[in-house]
Computed example of a mutant assay.
Amino acid sequence: MSEYADSSPQELIQPIILLVDREEPASEQHGIAAAALASAQAFLRDRENPDWRLWASGAFGKTVRRADAKVFAKVLAAFPEHVLATVGEASAVGLPPMPAAELPKLLAKLQVSGTQLPPGEPLPPQPLSIVLNASLEMSTGKACAQAAHALFAWVLESKPAAVEAWAADGFPLGVLELPAKEFHKGARKSAGPVIQDAGRTEIEPGSTTAYVTVAAEKPRPWWKRTSA
C-alpha cells in the first residue's frame, strides 16, 4: 500500500499532534506508538462519521505535527473530539479528518518537519507490533506517520473480531526497528499491508517503510483470527 503524501486543498487529512516536551521529551519508540494509537483510536471511536468513511475509502493522508506541553494543552482544550493516546511518557492526539487547506490556525502553525525524540528505552515485546525499516533512518515524525499508516491499514483490513479483541485488551502495541534484510524478510509474513512511501519527504519514492506483525506464539485465541 502506498502512503498518501501530498494533499490538494479539497482532500482530507488526519492531524496527529505529538507532544514533544522541551525539558523531558519522551523516548522515540513510545512517541511512535502513541502517534499510531492516536490515529487508530480516533477512527475506532467514530468510524460511522461520513468524513472518516470518505477519508478511509481512498489513499488516506496524515499530518504529524509537534507541540510543546503548553500548546499541547491548548490543542486538548480546543478540540473536544480529540482522542488522547499515552504510551509511557509519550502522548499524542488523534483528530478526525479535515480538509488539507482548512486546518485551524492552532494546528496549521505547528511544525511538521524535523521532529525528533531521543532513543531511550525500547518498548517491551507485544503480541501486535509495528515494524519499521531502520535502514531508512527516518526522523521521529516521519516514523510516526508511517507507523500510523501501517496500524490504520491493519485496522481496516483485519476482521472486526480481531480489532475488537485488541481494543478490549487495552490496545497493546510494540515497535520494532529492523535492518533492511530482516525487515524485508519479515514483510512477507506481515499481518497487514506493507507501506510504501511516496518519497516526497526524507526518503526515496517507493521505499517500504512499515508493516504490522503478530507474534507467532498466538498468546490469545483471537490472534488466530487476524487477517494475513
Rank of each mutant, 00 (worst) to 15 (best):
G120I: 04
S8L: 14
H149L: 10
P25D: 11
A143G: 15
G58R: 15
P97S: 09
P96E: 04
R66G: 12
R45E: 10
V64A: 09
T208G: 00
T209R: 03
L110S: 09
T201A: 02
K224G: 06
E24T: 12
I195Y: 00
L176E: 15
A77P: 01
A153P: 04
L76G: 08
V64S: 07
V75T: 10
I195F: 00
S190C: 10
A143D: 13
C144K: 08
V194W: 06
A73Y: 01
T226L: 03
L12I: 06
S8T: 11
L110H: 03
K185C: 05
T140G: 10
A210H: 09
V155S: 01
G141C: 09
L151A: 06
G141K: 05
G114R: 04
K224N: 09
D68L: 03
Q146M: 02
S135L: 12
A148P: 08
S57E: 14
A26L: 07
G120E: 05
D197W: 01
S27G: 15
Q29T: 08
I17E: 07
G192P: 04
I130N: 09
T213W: 05
E202F: 07
L76M: 09
P221Y: 05
L173P: 06
L110K: 10
T208R: 13
T226D: 09
T209L: 00
L132K: 07
E81I: 00
P160D: 07
V212K: 11
A215Q: 13
S190H: 10
P99F: 04
S113L: 01
A108V: 02
D46A: 14
L107E: 04
Q116A: 04
F79D: 13
Y211D: 05
L19S: 02
F60P: 04
H82C: 06
R200A: 05
I17M: 13
A228L: 13
P50N: 12
H149E: 09
R45Y: 00
G61W: 03
A191P: 06
A165I: 00
P25G: 04
Y4K: 13
V112D: 08
D197R: 07
R188M: 10
L103Q: 14
Q14F: 01
R65W: 03
P99S: 09
W55K: 11
W52F: 15
Y4S: 13
